[in-house]
């Protein structure tokens, strides 16, 4: 499953991040990396953007980016 499959309030562990290298680097810098715990705080209407809590910060992800991040629910 990936972030787009989560419901608000779900906590999960990031499994893999499958996207171009520069985007992966940015996500890594923001603590969205393999093994890190994140929480889905909010989905925007029509599920176009996803607000997650990662490494103590709130990160907004577009749908395409969220779909690249596979997770395991805790």
């Amino acid at each position: 499953m990936n972030i787009t499959d989560l419901t608000e309030g779900d906590r999960c562990l990031v499994d893999t991040v499958s996207c171009p290298a520069d985007l992966q680097e940015r996500l890594f810098s923001l603590h969205i990396r393999s093994g890190e715990q994140i929480k889905l705080l909010k989905r925007s209407f029509f599920r176009k953007t996803f607000l997650v809590l990662a490494g103590g910060s709130k990160i907004a992800l577009g749908k395409e980016v969220a779909a690249c991040i596979s997770v395991k629910k805790i």
């Binding site: 996207c19 985007l23 940015r26 996500l27 923001l30 953007t49 607000l51 910060s57 709130k58 990160i59 907004a60 992800l61 577009g62 395409e64 980016v65």
Partner: peptide, 9 residues
């Protein structure tokens, strides 16, 4: 194509 959206709030 739209660029990917990643932003710290």
């Amino acid at each position: 194509d739209a660029p990917p959206f990643v932003m710290e709030l």
